[in-house]
Write a protein that binds this DNA or RNA. Structure first.
Lengths: 227, 227
DNA sequence: CTTGATAACTTAGCGACGCTAACCTACGAA
DNA sequence: TTCGTAGGTTAGCGTCGCTAAGTTATCAAG
């Protein structure tokens, strides 16, 4: 373990700078080591060219440091999703919804360990609920769901439950493809597209059935609509 | 930390007995401590009334021990799902499928930390793929999917992709409800039922549409079938 | 230009961790 | 009665998260 070139001590108000360097060092080390558990505070400190206790000047403990990483990863995810939405040629709501869902899954698979830390570990301190729903990736996703409702794809109503459900669909695919890669999934885009379509179409169809979708009601409806 | 009453040393062929005691001790400690990370080999040893190195007579390292716990949890999950399937009065395939899906989600939420260890952590050594598909909880679930196909609920074909998709749907709900409990999910049964119905109905509807479900095709189909 | 409060960082070290080498000891077949 | 060995134990290495207490560079004030 060779230590990095000595850092020059930060100026008086520039302590914050080290904070960002630390977060990035953690993200890099997570990728290099392949898992969060094998990233130690000591290794992070060495990577940024500082001694271990300096980390604790900027983060209360390892949990707080990882929480900061989670926030960073969510921001990155949000950027990826917004970019994907902006990049589709046809801006019809369902197309945008699909693009966002696929971008979500692709981000998760491409940044598997970062995604795991952000979404699969229980956060130490639960963030503000309203803030999650009002801002960030989930909020942007819910806007698209609302657009789908306005366009008549989904039955009118509260977009929140449907957005949550579609999120669980995307997360389910991403999480299992990451955790059980040896199963015969097929390509990310193929699996993602199929499952997301099924989820979206399913919710739309529930809207069409109208009543509470008991297995019987579903069977009846399917029989009625079979060609 | 008071130590347990001294174990009497096992008889000559009974080393296996300690193995089982260790696995159960780990499962208990996971529940008590609230997370896997905070369960130490030392604590496990003390719980079963043995010194630390004795653990390594039965498991190569901590990873192998946790792998054994995972296997145990999957077996427990399988039992829960099979029981749920047997307990439903109406044995129509879709009803059974729903019962199994809900039982899966309920098991996950009720045994959150065990479920996390089993499904969310990457296994050290990937299990035999064919065995997973042929035996255990997933295999039993796939049988129900096949029954749904035979009953005409899903379009005929390979049950594997649909079973995988439905699994991801169930896992998505369970995983996010566990990891982000502060979000406004509603009751487990309600959310699970809605999302599982949407996934199943969605796959059935994809079968009805026939062609590859592009957003356009879905929109057209929905327009055609709106009352 | 000196001073002195303090932000920024270090040295030294505690207790707990996973894990191992080396030793012990009771059982049970010969 | 002997003795190989399954089923343990004692002692300890290196690393971990984290902290108390000390050091040094910076910069506003006199």
């Amino acid at each position: 373990m060779t230590s990095r070139p000595k850092r020059t001590r930060a100026r008086r108000g520039d302590g914050e700078q080290l904070r960002l360097e630390i977060i990035n060092a953690v993200k890099d080390l997570i990728v290099e080591k392949g898992s969060v558990e094998s990233v130690s505070i000591r290794a992070v400190a060495q990577r940024v060219g500082v001694t271990t206790p300096s980390i604790y000047l900027h983060f209360a403990d390892k949990g707080a440091l990882l929480d900061a990483v989670v926030t960073d990863v969510f921001a990155e995810l949000d950027v990826a999703i917004m970019k994907a939405a902006a990049d589709v040629a046809d801006q019809s709501p369902l197309t945008v919804l699909r693009a966002q869902g696929l971008a979500y899954i692709r981000f998760a698979v491409d940044h598997a360990e970062h995604y795991r830390v952000a979404v699969m570990e229980p956060c130490i301190v639960p963030p503000d609920v309203d803030e999650v729903i009002r801002e960030g990736a989930f909020a942007h996703f819910m806007t698209t769901v609302q657009a789908c409702m306005d366009a008549g794809v989904f039955a009118d109503g509260d977009p929140l439950p449907i957005a949550l459900d579609l999120w669980t669909a995307a997360h389910g695919i991403a999480a299992l493809m990451i955790a059980k890669p040896y199963l015969p999934w097929g390509s990310v885009d193929e699996v993602g597209d199929r499952a997301l379509c099924a989820a979206a179409l399913g919710h739309a169809a529930i809207g069409l059935i109208g009543t509470d979708p008991t297995p019987d009601a579903i069977t009846d409806w399917l029989t009625a609509h079979r060609p």
